[in-house]
Amino acid sequence: MRIGIEAQRIFRKKKHGMDIVAVQMIKELQKIDRVNEYFIFVNPDVDTATISESENFKIIPLKKSPYPIWEQKHLSEAVKTYRLDLLHCTGNTAPINTSVPLVLTLHDIIYLEKTDVRSGSWYQRLGNLYRKWNVPKVVRNSDAIFTVSEFEKKVIDKYFKFEKEKVKVIYNGVAQHFQPHSITAITDKIKDYGLPKKYLLFLGNTAPKKNLKGVLLALKKLDQKGKLNMDIVMPDFGENELNALLASIDAKSIRNKIHLTGYIPNQDLPYVYSGAEMFLYPSLRESFGLPILEAMACGCPVITSNTSSMPEIAGDAAVLVDPFNPEAICEAIENLLQDQVLRSSLISKGYARVPLFSFEQGAKTILDTYSKIHDMHK
């Protein structure tokens, strides 16, 4: 087979969830498939060391352009140019018209659940508008759809009401470099980012679903109790956005407790997880929640939400809270800071939880699906 994989964003410097998942999927396919020919279509960018070519895996940079144009024009043309037998789009959207069978990784349909497109950054808003237009069309044209949790599968099935089974769950996994590090290694990396010796960690972005407001309200409550006795590290947040939100909730008093680092590359995150007292991930809505497993793999206890996919991924290896209740988040932080038995238990359970999720197993399922679709279309 000649298989095309859309991996448009994987060479960009600031990679996030879907980009990381696409990279790991490709690497696992490289390990297990030496027979089929693969063409990895990317948007040219700076981080070209993300993946490497091999004998049957070729990286094809298409003309650098905005995502909709890149996907609808250049990717569509590449399907014909490279005489593909199958195209797998990894980031929710796909070309409207393809001349070959289409496999789609649909991480979530959060953007279809809400009509308010005014929240989040301009980049996030425009992306959601494109998805709202594109996804309902391409799911109908897909021969198979992968999603990342049983929760999200139920949401997708309920929304689209497919006549036959079309959606498969392929869990994400954790890259091998996510592991606990020694005190010396952690200390050296902390110095690189100017981090405090003891800190809480919150990893998210300005998207409303990440619940930055709820976390800040919880920290404000903790501060009012006189128990916010360490800094909280928040990578990839802007000073202006943070200050505006703190002002809106009358929480400027905790600004001196918040440490902004800017973007932290994926390769450095294990050190930051390993050095944290705990990881806060009380999102309002997730389709998977990859950072939950990343933190567990690094021996960092986790507080996450009791909603959407997060209980499915965390199991009993995290403290689950109501993300809409800042007081509940505050109490969970306070309890975990004080209860060393709970902390040790969560770390042990986290280590045991991580191996249940595997990119390797996911790649095997993907390859099997490719073969079945190809046989159907012979």
Rank of each mutant, 00 (worst) to 15 (best):
L201F: 08
L201H: 12
F202I: 01
F202H: 09
F202M: 01
F202C: 03
F202A: 01
L203F: 02
L203R: 00
G204P: 10
G204D: 08
G204R: 08
G204W: 07
N205G: 15
T206P: 00
T206M: 10
A207T: 11
A207E: 15
P208A: 05
P208T: 08
P208V: 06
K209I: 13
K209T: 09
K209M: 12
K209A: 01
K209C: 05
K209D: 10
K209P: 03
K209F: 12
K210F: 02
N211A: 10
N211L: 14
L212R: 02
L212S: 03
L212W: 04
K213A: 04
K213V: 14
K213C: 07
G214C: 07
G214P: 11
G214N: 10
V215I: 15
V215T: 11
V215G: 02
L216V: 06
L217Q: 15
L219S: 04
K220A: 04
K220E: 05
K221P: 01
K221D: 02
K221R: 14
K221W: 04
L222C: 10
L222D: 03
D223N: 15
D223V: 01
D223P: 04
D223H: 13
D223S: 15
Q224P: 12
Q224E: 14
Q224C: 06
Q224A: 12
K225I: 08
K225Y: 13
G226L: 13
G226S: 14
G226D: 05
G226Y: 09
G226F: 10
K227C: 06
K227S: 13
K227Q: 14
K227N: 08
K227F: 09
L228A: 04
L228G: 01
L228D: 04
L228I: 12
L228Q: 02
D231S: 12
D231W: 00
D231Q: 10
D231V: 01
I232D: 00
I232Y: 04
I232N: 05
I232R: 08
V233Q: 01
V233F: 02
V233G: 00
V233L: 01
V233H: 00
V233R: 00
M234F: 02
M234D: 00
M234P: 01
P235I: 04
P235D: 00
P235A: 02
P235S: 00
D236N: 14
D236Q: 05
D236R: 05
D236L: 00
F237Y: 07
F237R: 01
G238A: 09
G238N: 11
E239G: 00
E239L: 07
N240K: 15
N240Y: 09
E241Q: 12
E241D: 15
L242E: 03
L242A: 06
L242V: 09
N243Q: 10
N243S: 09
A244N: 15
A244Q: 15
A244M: 12
A244S: 14
L245G: 11
L246P: 08
L246M: 14
L246T: 08
L246E: 09
A247G: 02
S248T: 03
S248L: 05
I249N: 06
D250A: 08
D250H: 13
A251H: 00
K252D: 13
K252C: 07
K252F: 09
S253E: 15
S253M: 14
S253Q: 14
I254W: 05
I254Q: 07
I254E: 04
